[in-house]
Amino acid sequence: MFRAASLLLAGAMLAGAVRAGDTQACDKPLYLTFDTGHMGVAPLVAEVLQRQGVKATFFLAHEKTLDGGGSLDNRWAPWWKARAAEGHAFGSHTYDHVYWLADRAGGFRMRPSAGPHAGRAADWGTAQYCEEIQRSAARFHDMTGAEMGAVFRAPGGKTSQALLDAAAQCGWQHVPWSPAGFLGDELPSERFSNAKLLERALRDIRRGDILLAHLGIWSRQDPWAPAVLEPLIEGLKARGFCFVTLRDHPSYRAAMARPAPR
Protein backbone atom coordinates (compact mmCIF):
# COMPACT_ATOMS: atom_id res chain seq x y z
CA MET A 1 0.00 0.00 0.00
CA PHE A 2 2.87 2.36 0.85
CA ARG A 3 4.51 1.68 -2.51
CA ALA A 4 1.24 2.33 -4.36
CA ALA A 5 0.73 5.59 -2.49
CA SER A 6 4.30 6.63 -3.25
CA LEU A 7 3.80 5.93 -6.94
CA LEU A 8 0.60 7.95 -6.98
CA LEU A 9 2.33 10.86 -5.24
CA ALA A 10 5.24 10.73 -7.66
CA GLY A 11 2.85 10.70 -10.59
CA ALA A 12 0.99 13.70 -9.24
CA MET A 13 4.26 15.58 -8.70
CA LEU A 14 5.39 14.77 -12.22
CA ALA A 15 2.08 15.94 -13.68
CA GLY A 16 2.37 19.17 -11.72
CA ALA A 17 5.91 19.67 -12.96
CA VAL A 18 4.79 19.17 -16.54
CA ARG A 19 1.98 21.70 -16.11
CA ALA A 20 4.35 24.16 -14.50
CA GLY A 21 6.84 23.64 -17.30
CA ASP A 22 4.13 24.27 -19.88
CA THR A 23 3.18 27.52 -18.17
CA GLN A 24 6.81 28.66 -18.00
CA ALA A 25 7.39 27.71 -21.62
CA CYS A 26 4.43 29.87 -22.69
CA ASP A 27 6.26 33.18 -22.42
CA LYS A 28 4.40 34.75 -25.39
CA PRO A 29 0.77 33.97 -24.53
CA LEU A 30 -2.23 34.94 -26.62
CA TYR A 31 -5.87 34.64 -25.58
CA LEU A 32 -8.12 33.59 -28.45
CA THR A 33 -11.78 34.36 -27.79
CA PHE A 34 -14.96 33.74 -29.77
CA ASP A 35 -18.33 35.42 -29.42
CA THR A 36 -21.42 33.58 -30.61
CA GLY A 37 -23.12 34.46 -33.89
CA HIS A 38 -25.10 32.49 -36.45
CA MET A 39 -22.94 29.41 -35.67
CA GLY A 40 -22.32 28.65 -39.34
CA VAL A 41 -18.58 28.22 -38.80
CA ALA A 42 -18.81 26.68 -35.32
CA PRO A 43 -18.05 23.11 -36.50
CA LEU A 44 -15.05 24.36 -38.47
CA VAL A 45 -13.77 26.37 -35.50
CA ALA A 46 -14.02 23.33 -33.22
CA GLU A 47 -12.19 21.18 -35.76
CA VAL A 48 -9.36 23.69 -36.21
CA LEU A 49 -8.90 24.24 -32.48
CA GLN A 50 -8.75 20.51 -31.86
CA ARG A 51 -6.33 19.90 -34.71
CA GLN A 52 -4.07 22.74 -33.57
CA GLY A 53 -4.26 21.86 -29.88
CA VAL A 54 -5.55 25.34 -29.03
CA LYS A 55 -7.85 26.18 -26.14
CA ALA A 56 -10.06 29.24 -26.51
CA THR A 57 -12.53 31.23 -24.44
CA PHE A 58 -16.11 31.44 -25.70
CA PHE A 59 -18.62 34.18 -24.81
CA LEU A 60 -22.19 32.92 -25.11
CA ALA A 61 -25.41 34.65 -26.17
CA HIS A 62 -28.58 33.11 -27.54
CA GLU A 63 -28.33 34.52 -31.07
CA LYS A 64 -30.29 33.57 -34.18
CA THR A 65 -28.65 30.78 -36.17
CA LEU A 66 -28.60 29.94 -39.87
CA ASP A 67 -31.21 27.21 -39.37
CA GLY A 68 -33.64 29.61 -37.69
CA GLY A 69 -32.94 28.39 -34.17
CA GLY A 70 -30.70 29.87 -31.49
CA SER A 71 -27.06 29.39 -30.55
CA LEU A 72 -27.99 28.09 -27.08
CA ASP A 73 -30.94 25.91 -28.07
CA ASN A 74 -31.09 22.14 -27.69
CA ARG A 75 -29.62 21.55 -31.13
CA TRP A 76 -26.37 23.24 -30.07
CA ALA A 77 -26.26 21.87 -26.52
CA PRO A 78 -24.10 18.84 -27.52
CA TRP A 79 -21.68 21.16 -29.28
CA TRP A 80 -21.20 23.27 -26.18
CA LYS A 81 -20.92 20.20 -23.98
CA ALA A 82 -18.15 18.85 -26.21
CA ARG A 83 -16.23 22.13 -26.02
CA ALA A 84 -16.51 22.12 -22.22
CA ALA A 85 -15.19 18.54 -22.14
CA GLU A 86 -12.22 19.62 -24.28
CA GLY A 87 -11.16 22.17 -21.67
CA HIS A 88 -12.14 25.46 -23.28
CA ALA A 89 -13.26 28.37 -21.09
CA PHE A 90 -16.56 30.25 -21.14
CA GLY A 91 -18.15 33.56 -20.24
CA SER A 92 -21.43 35.38 -20.81
CA HIS A 93 -22.24 37.61 -23.79
CA THR A 94 -25.65 38.47 -22.27
CA TYR A 95 -28.52 36.17 -23.23
CA ASP A 96 -30.38 38.20 -25.85
CA HIS A 97 -27.21 39.92 -27.13
CA VAL A 98 -28.18 43.18 -25.48
CA TYR A 99 -26.39 46.38 -26.50
CA TRP A 100 -25.75 49.26 -24.13
CA LEU A 101 -26.90 52.52 -25.75
CA ALA A 102 -26.61 55.13 -22.99
CA ASP A 103 -26.66 55.68 -19.26
CA ARG A 104 -29.92 56.78 -17.68
CA ALA A 105 -30.75 58.02 -14.21
CA GLY A 106 -30.76 54.86 -12.12
CA GLY A 107 -29.99 52.60 -15.06
CA PHE A 108 -29.27 52.23 -18.75
CA ARG A 109 -30.80 52.43 -22.20
CA MET A 110 -30.46 48.96 -23.73
CA ARG A 111 -31.42 47.24 -27.00
CA PRO A 112 -31.42 43.47 -27.58
CA SER A 113 -30.54 42.19 -31.04
CA ALA A 114 -32.04 38.74 -30.33
CA GLY A 115 -34.97 37.30 -28.42
CA PRO A 116 -38.59 38.46 -28.22
CA HIS A 117 -37.69 42.15 -27.82
CA ALA A 118 -35.03 42.31 -30.57
CA GLY A 119 -34.53 45.78 -31.97
CA ARG A 120 -36.56 47.54 -29.26
CA ALA A 121 -34.77 49.94 -26.91
CA ALA A 122 -35.81 50.08 -23.27
CA ASP A 123 -34.61 51.44 -19.95
CA TRP A 124 -33.15 48.83 -17.61
CA GLY A 125 -32.01 48.90 -14.02
CA THR A 126 -28.95 47.20 -12.57
CA ALA A 127 -30.87 44.14 -11.38
CA GLN A 128 -32.33 43.52 -14.84
CA TYR A 129 -28.95 43.83 -16.51
CA CYS A 130 -27.34 41.47 -14.02
CA GLU A 131 -30.13 38.95 -14.58
CA GLU A 132 -29.54 39.19 -18.33
CA ILE A 133 -25.85 38.31 -17.97
CA GLN A 134 -26.67 35.48 -15.59
CA ARG A 135 -29.19 33.88 -17.95
CA SER A 136 -26.36 32.70 -20.22
CA ALA A 137 -24.52 31.19 -17.27
CA ALA A 138 -27.62 29.29 -16.19
CA ARG A 139 -28.25 28.01 -19.70
CA PHE A 140 -24.61 26.98 -20.10
CA HIS A 141 -24.84 24.95 -16.90
CA ASP A 142 -28.05 23.34 -18.08
CA MET A 143 -26.41 22.31 -21.38
CA THR A 144 -23.06 21.13 -20.07
CA GLY A 145 -23.17 20.61 -16.30
CA ALA A 146 -20.13 22.93 -16.16
CA GLU A 147 -19.73 26.44 -14.77
CA MET A 148 -18.79 29.60 -16.60
CA GLY A 149 -16.22 31.89 -15.14
CA ALA A 150 -17.59 35.13 -13.70
CA VAL A 151 -16.66 37.12 -16.81
CA PHE A 152 -18.74 38.68 -19.55
CA ARG A 153 -18.31 40.61 -22.77
CA ALA A 154 -20.83 43.28 -23.68
CA PRO A 155 -22.10 42.97 -27.26
CA GLY A 156 -20.11 45.23 -29.54
CA GLY A 157 -17.83 45.92 -26.60
CA LYS A 158 -20.14 48.85 -25.82
CA THR A 159 -20.08 49.82 -22.15
CA SER A 160 -19.89 52.74 -19.76
CA GLN A 161 -18.18 52.95 -16.41
CA ALA A 162 -21.61 52.88 -14.79
CA LEU A 163 -22.48 49.67 -16.62
CA LEU A 164 -19.19 48.03 -15.63
CA ASP A 165 -19.71 49.08 -12.02
CA ALA A 166 -23.24 47.66 -12.04
CA ALA A 167 -22.03 44.31 -13.41
CA ALA A 168 -19.24 44.22 -10.83
CA GLN A 169 -21.79 44.70 -8.04
CA CYS A 170 -23.36 41.38 -8.99
CA GLY A 171 -20.05 39.59 -9.41
CA TRP A 172 -19.16 39.98 -13.11
CA GLN A 173 -15.93 41.28 -14.67
CA HIS A 174 -15.94 42.62 -18.23
CA VAL A 175 -13.46 41.35 -20.84
CA PRO A 176 -12.73 43.57 -23.86
CA TRP A 177 -10.24 42.73 -26.61
CA SER A 178 -6.90 44.19 -27.64
CA PRO A 179 -6.81 46.68 -30.53
CA ALA A 180 -4.57 44.39 -32.60
CA GLY A 181 -6.69 41.45 -31.47
CA PHE A 182 -9.72 42.66 -33.42
CA LEU A 183 -9.44 40.06 -36.19
CA GLY A 184 -11.94 41.76 -38.49
CA ASP A 185 -14.28 38.88 -39.23
CA GLU A 186 -17.27 41.26 -39.00
CA LEU A 187 -15.84 43.83 -41.43
CA PRO A 188 -17.15 44.02 -45.02
CA SER A 189 -15.17 41.60 -47.18
CA GLU A 190 -15.26 43.90 -50.21
CA ARG A 191 -13.10 46.38 -48.29
CA PHE A 192 -11.19 44.02 -45.97
CA SER A 193 -10.19 40.83 -47.74
CA ASN A 194 -9.30 37.72 -45.79
CA ALA A 195 -5.72 37.96 -47.09
CA LYS A 196 -5.38 41.53 -45.79
CA LEU A 197 -6.89 40.64 -42.42
CA LEU A 198 -4.48 37.72 -42.04
CA GLU A 199 -1.50 39.87 -43.00
CA ARG A 200 -2.50 42.60 -40.57
CA ALA A 201 -3.02 40.20 -37.68
CA LEU A 202 0.32 38.44 -38.20
CA ARG A 203 2.05 41.81 -38.37
CA ASP A 204 0.41 43.57 -35.43
CA ILE A 205 -0.46 41.00 -32.74
CA ARG A 206 1.78 41.15 -29.69
CA ARG A 207 2.37 39.13 -26.54
CA GLY A 208 -0.60 39.17 -24.15
CA ASP A 209 -3.19 40.28 -26.70
CA ILE A 210 -6.80 39.15 -26.39
CA LEU A 211 -8.03 38.14 -29.85
CA LEU A 212 -11.66 38.39 -30.97
CA ALA A 213 -13.54 36.38 -33.61
CA HIS A 214 -17.08 35.05 -33.97
CA LEU A 215 -18.86 31.77 -34.65
CA GLY A 216 -20.66 33.33 -37.60
CA ILE A 217 -21.26 36.85 -38.94
CA TRP A 218 -24.35 37.64 -41.01
CA SER A 219 -23.00 40.71 -42.79
CA ARG A 220 -19.68 39.41 -44.17
CA GLN A 221 -20.00 37.89 -47.63
CA ASP A 222 -16.65 36.05 -47.69
CA PRO A 223 -16.48 34.14 -44.39
CA TRP A 224 -13.33 34.78 -42.38
CA ALA A 225 -12.83 31.57 -40.45
CA PRO A 226 -12.46 29.07 -43.34
CA ALA A 227 -9.73 31.17 -44.94
CA VAL A 228 -7.94 32.76 -41.98
CA LEU A 229 -8.32 30.91 -38.67
CA GLU A 230 -5.92 28.02 -39.19
CA PRO A 231 -3.26 30.00 -41.15
CA LEU A 232 -3.41 32.63 -38.40
CA ILE A 233 -2.88 30.10 -35.62
CA GLU A 234 -0.04 28.43 -37.52
CA GLY A 235 1.57 31.76 -38.35
CA LEU A 236 1.43 32.96 -34.77
CA LYS A 237 2.83 29.68 -33.49
CA ALA A 238 5.70 30.06 -35.97
CA ARG A 239 6.45 33.45 -34.36
CA GLY A 240 6.74 31.79 -30.95
CA PHE A 241 3.29 32.59 -29.61
CA CYS A 242 1.20 30.11 -27.63
CA PHE A 243 -2.52 30.03 -26.90
CA VAL A 244 -4.09 29.85 -23.45
CA THR A 245 -7.54 30.65 -22.09
CA LEU A 246 -8.52 33.57 -19.90
CA ARG A 247 -8.11 31.24 -16.92
CA ASP A 248 -4.40 32.07 -17.27
CA HIS A 249 -4.77 35.82 -17.87
CA PRO A 250 -3.43 37.82 -14.90
CA SER A 251 -6.31 40.31 -15.06
CA TYR A 252 -9.08 37.69 -15.26
CA ARG A 253 -7.66 34.63 -13.49
CA ALA A 254 -9.50 35.33 -10.24
CA ALA A 255 -12.86 35.94 -11.93
CA MET A 256 -12.47 32.85 -14.10
CA ALA A 257 -11.85 30.78 -10.97
CA ARG A 258 -15.19 31.88 -9.47
CA PRO A 259 -18.35 30.12 -10.62
CA ALA A 260 -20.53 32.57 -12.50
CA PRO A 261 -23.53 33.95 -10.58
CA ARG A 262 -26.73 32.27 -11.80
Results as ranks from 00 to 15, higher is better:
residue 185 D to K: 00
residue 90 F to D: 09
residue 240 G to Q: 03
residue 134 Q to V: 00
residue 148 M to A: 09
residue 244 V to N: 05
residue 160 S to C: 11
residue 72 L to N: 04
residue 117 H to S: 12
residue 189 S to E: 03
residue 224 W to R: 10
residue 72 L to Y: 10
residue 242 C to D: 00
residue 114 A to P: 00
residue 165 D to N: 14
residue 166 A to Y: 04
residue 150 A to E: 08
residue 129 Y to F: 15
residue 227 A to K: 13
residue 175 V to S: 04
residue 30 L to K: 05
residue 249 H to V: 12
residue 124 W to T: 01
residue 251 S to F: 14
residue 143 M to W: 02
residue 173 Q to N: 07
residue 94 T to P: 08
residue 150 A to Y: 06
residue 175 V to K: 02
residue 18 V to I: 15
residue 92 S to G: 01
residue 243 F to Y: 07
residue 230 E to H: 11
residue 221 Q to N: 13
residue 138 A to I: 09
residue 233 I to C: 11
residue 157 G to I: 10
residue 69 G to W: 07
residue 179 P to Y: 12
residue 102 A to R: 14
residue 190 E to A: 13
residue 222 D to Q: 15
residue 173 Q to I: 09
residue 66 L to P: 01
residue 69 G to E: 06
residue 153 R to A: 07
residue 214 H to S: 05
residue 139 R to I: 10
residue 255 A to W: 05
residue 35 D to H: 10
residue 95 Y to E: 00
residue 135 R to V: 02
residue 60 L to S: 02
residue 30 L to V: 09
residue 144 T to K: 12
residue 200 R to Y: 09
residue 9 L to S: 11
residue 94 T to C: 09
residue 241 F to E: 02
residue 130 C to E: 00
residue 255 A to M: 06
residue 105 A to W: 02
residue 152 F to W: 15
residue 122 A to T: 08
residue 202 L to V: 07
residue 1 M to E: 15
residue 254 A to N: 09
residue 192 F to Y: 15
residue 92 S to V: 03
residue 129 Y to G: 08
residue 133 I to W: 00
residue 220 R to L: 02
residue 181 G to I: 03
residue 162 A to R: 13
residue 233 I to F: 06
residue 76 W to I: 04
residue 138 A to W: 10
residue 188 P to M: 05
residue 57 T to A: 02
residue 216 G to P: 04
residue 256 M to V: 00
residue 178 S to Q: 00
residue 162 A to T: 12
residue 89 A to N: 08
residue 151 V to E: 08
residue 228 V to F: 05
residue 146 A to F: 08
residue 66 L to W: 14
residue 243 F to R: 02
residue 27 D to H: 14
residue 51 R to G: 14
residue 84 A to Y: 01
residue 43 P to G: 06
residue 101 L to K: 11
residue 247 R to K: 15
residue 25 A to Y: 04
residue 172 W to M: 04
residue 222 D to G: 06
residue 210 I to P: 04
residue 119 G to L: 00
residue 169 Q to Y: 03
residue 169 Q to W: 07
residue 246 L to H: 08
residue 202 L to K: 03
residue 23 T to N: 12
residue 178 S to D: 06
residue 139 R to F: 03
residue 124 W to A: 09
residue 10 A to M: 12
residue 125 G to W: 10
residue 224 W to K: 05
residue 72 L to H: 00
residue 134 Q to W: 02
residue 19 R to D: 13
residue 229 L to Q: 11
residue 156 G to A: 07
residue 95 Y to C: 10
residue 228 V to C: 12
